[in-house]
């Protein structure tokens, strides 16, 4: 290409670029004015984990099984738990996560047998210190008493029902045994078959 020709084509391509810019200047702005505009978070958004508050029970359902502690690649979960008077199984009494270490992998959520972990929607948290610990039980503290009372009542009721059932069964058994004993006395040759059926 000649010298002048290349100058000409150079100008042409530069003008094409300018033309595109000119067109876009009139277009809609695509910038999000964060932090003045709150971002729309997708449902799957990952931030720190939190304990689900189940509707039926009014609280979380962490049984302190330590599965999440074991699988966490960043070893950032600390859980303490134990028996609570009047309730079957264990329950977490301390649940902390050091968010500074968390790698947001979601393995803890996938592994939880009671599905009591989920992602929170915190996106604008900041801290001054190196430790960035969330106490996951804190939001549940207010409901804990209520939960325990209800749970105890339910379990007491269940226990009572079970006991009643057991008593009824035992009673029926005793009655049956008594009647069988009576009939056995009447016809002792039948004893073998009845005892087999009993067992």
């Amino acid at each position: 290409m000649s010298y002048l020709g290349s100058i000409f084509s150079g100008f042409k391509t530069l003008l094409t670029g300018l033309g595109i810019t000119g067109k876009e200047i009139g277009g809609k702005s695509v910038t999000e004015l964060y932090p003045h505009v709150e971002p729309e978070l997708p449902e799957a958004f990952r931030s720190v984990i939190q304990l689900v508050r189940f509707e039926e029970s009014g609280s979380h359902d962490c049984v302190a099984c330590m599965q999440c502690v074991k699988i966490c690649p960043s070893t950032c979960i600390t859980i303490e738990g134990g028996k609570i008077e009047g309730i079957k199984g264990k329950r977490a009494s301390e649940f902390e996560i050091d968010f500074a270490l968390c790698s947001l992998c979601g393995l803890c959520i996938d592994t939880c047998p009671t599905d009591t972990l989920e992602w929170a929607n915190i996106y604008d948290d900041a801290g001054q210190e190196r430790e960035w610990v969330y106490d996951l039980l804190k939001p549940h503290e207010a409901f804990e008493e209520q939960y325990l009372t209800t749970r105890r009542a339910i379990e007491a009721k269940e226990a009572a029902e079970k006991a009643a059932k057991k008593a009824a069964v035992a009673k029926a058994k005793a009655e049956k045994a008594a009647s069988e004993a009576a009939s056995q006395e009447a016809s002792p040759e039948k004893s073998d078959t009845t005892s087999e059926a009993d067992s």
Binding site: P42, A44, F45, R46, L104, C105, G106, D110, W119
Partner: peptide, 24 residues
């Protein structure tokens, strides 16, 4: 990034795979 964020929850470090499939 927004499309991927909707299903994976993350924009760069996805951790989307699981052994035997994907997480969502």
């Amino acid at each position: 990034l927004s499309i991927l964020e909707r299903v994976t929850g993350s924009r760069l470090t996805y951790s989307y795979g699981r052994f035997g499939g994907v997480s969502q």
